[in-house]
Design a protein around this nucleic acid. Structure first.
Lengths: 216, 216, 216, 216
DNA sequence: GATGAATGAGATTTCATTCAT
DNA sequence: TATGAATGAAATCTCATTCAT
């Protein structure tokens, strides 16, 4: 019995080692520029072995994405748990998102790679759909926090939690991405300070969410 | 005299026809999945001819992107011209962005593809850098509108135009992207209405920009 | 233990089989006219496999050249070992050269193809530089034989071994090449007998080398 | 009448200008590496025009070779005319050959390019066969000089003029080629002085040709 | 005569994936 | 389980040559 378990554990370890290696290459060269040879070299394994653990190159990519999403979910979960009011929860989640993007910029980028679309729909229940599931988890937490905020009076009750969640998510992601991609350019040519963007973004968001009628 | 001109014109026409063809393929299959053979077939030209007009596949991609950016700049320019106050200009620009994304969803996506980063910095003054230039044009218009709004009292004077422009741009792009990618999912599984997202997004933005001290 | 060795051996065998195939094509159609498809077809392998063993077409060419040079070195070595006096060694080497050119005319030609000059000087320690090394080996043997001849009195002591070696090598190669290329023409149109050219060439050489003061 | 002539002359001029251009490129990049575009660019003409004057790339090459051969024939002719005895004529020709190779190294190399063999035998009477003819002219002059030398007693009568001519030609060409290709190497690594090679080569040749019985 | 756009066959090289060991 | 040699389809790009203007 124990022998079986050990084998399972070792298999999982190796699987993770492969993802580690794949990450380091893909994050450097980009998905399309990375070859399975690169991955095998980085993993110090043969190419055949890689295919023993991942059926295709794409699956490898989804496994990386899943990792990123799991980290993000953790961030969100923690934010959800630690804050008191709904509004605070939402804010902490927002800040977590920014923190995630700066602590794990590569994972953040990976989440945006959606050019690799599932061609074969038979691939349901694979890593790819686990990503979908995990992504929804995040959104759900956000929606839940918004609903709580409306209930506890910290958030403007005219807001629709689902709609707002999508907006908040999209906005944050968009702002982060622009900062990441055009950051240097903006700073050098336009003298725009990146940290002030973040600050303003949150002031902005507060204005939207806050329940102005509430006795603070 | 005229003969030279006509040739120029024909060359430009053919160049455009090639971009047309490339677009139709790339927008369907994605940049990496599209081969130069696909493009040639779609253009009903030989592969060699394609390479006569575009030195690399990448250059072809930038030409498409440039088209998209030019359309967007037009949208922005028109918005800028047509509205009265700074605030109205900014709003009309925002709406133009959403309109652009719904009228030209493929161009909108193309603008996000920036994974194909300039590898060779010697590529200045090529189509790629024309894109950068065109992109900045849009941002500049937005900044100008914001500044005007502050001057004419329609926009909150505490706002920094540069920072706000980046935030607005990033937010809009992010929200649109989420809507485009997860739209179906959100509508079906979460019952979230897409048009209400847009509406809420603009209410959100108004709250941020408006000068509350102004006598309305 | 043996399994590793066997694999090495098999790899070497295949490598040689590829060179065999490449030779047969290149010797027929010429380097520039031969395509990697031709080589793959001749080797009854896929093109990819060829590139597994040789990084470029050029490397394949150098491998062929190296083979030729090795054969020639063997010829020279044997000549060196078998003859007694220095003069005899030199003569036997000359005859070996002619024999090499008639037994391996294609290799002889390959040695002349040096048009494909090393473009990338980073290519040191590759097959190409092994050729240079092997080529010098031949010349060294010749120089050694000439020096011995001067010491043992069989060769004219006024001769400088290095200079003479270069002359002898160049002369022989040149005469052989003319015979190979214009041979038919000379025989048919000018009635010149090829074998008499060889004979005369050696008489010629003897006249140059012999130590006339030696008691024969 | 004059108008026709002028046109002929102009055509010939342009043809020569094209060969000039082709030379400058081919001598730099090598035949196979040179494209017809390169030639057209260098000639400041359109590619179509090049094809108006030369049916194929190969024909262009032969035209260059022919130029080289004509220069060489001139050298030989002059040598033949200027020297007195047969032996002197032969020597002067040999020296001319060396001079040719140092004054026109590129033409000398071009003469060796014989990898471009005539595939289509229907191409007789083209530039290629003019080359053959011109090449034979040189050899004929040499044979004639040798015969004269035998008649006038300056050359060893046991020698067969045809055979000797081929040997002399081949030897000289071979020695020059080795010097050209391995010259640097020989000088640097082996300390062999190139000019002494030439000197020794001629001493060598004298020993072969001279009529020792002649009263000098 | 001169042009240069168009061709299209083909060159070299790459790489995801399979499979015998 | 692990290997890595083999595959072969496909990718990008080139170039001698033709031909309509």
């Amino acid at each position: 019995m124990g022998i079986q378990e050990r084998k399972e554990r070792e298999k999982e370890l190796r699987r993770n080692a492969i993802i580690d290696a794949a990450e380091s290459v893909i994050f450097t060269k980009g998905y399309w520029m990375t070859t399975m040879d690169d991955v095998a070299d980085a993993a110090e394994l043969s190419k055949g072995t890689i295919y023993l653990y991942f059926k295709t190159k794409e699956e490898l990519y989804w496994a990386i994405t899943l990792r990123g999403l799991k980290i993000l979910t953790d961030f969100f979960q923690k934010a959800y748990n630690e804050a008191e009011t709904g509004l605070q929860k939402v804010f902490l989640m927002g800040q977590s998102f920014f923190r995630f993007s700066s602590e794990h910029p590569d994972y953040f980028n990976a989440l945006g790679y959606y050019e690799i679309k599932e061609t074969d729909p038979a691939a349901a229940e694979t890593v790819s759909s686990m990503c979908d599931h995990e992504g929804m988890e995040c959104l759900d937490l956000l929606i839940r926090a918004l609903s709580e905020g409306i209930r506890d009076g910290s958030i403007n009750p005219e807001i629709n939690p689902g709609t707002a969640a999508v907006i908040l998510w999209g906005q944050a992601a968009g702002v982060i991405q622009v900062m990441a991609m055009k950051g240097d350019h903006l700073q050098r040519r336009h003298g725009i300070d990146l940290s002030s963007i973040t600050d303003d973004y949150f002031r902005f968001t507060r204005c939207f969410l806050e329940n102005k009628n509430a006795a603070r």
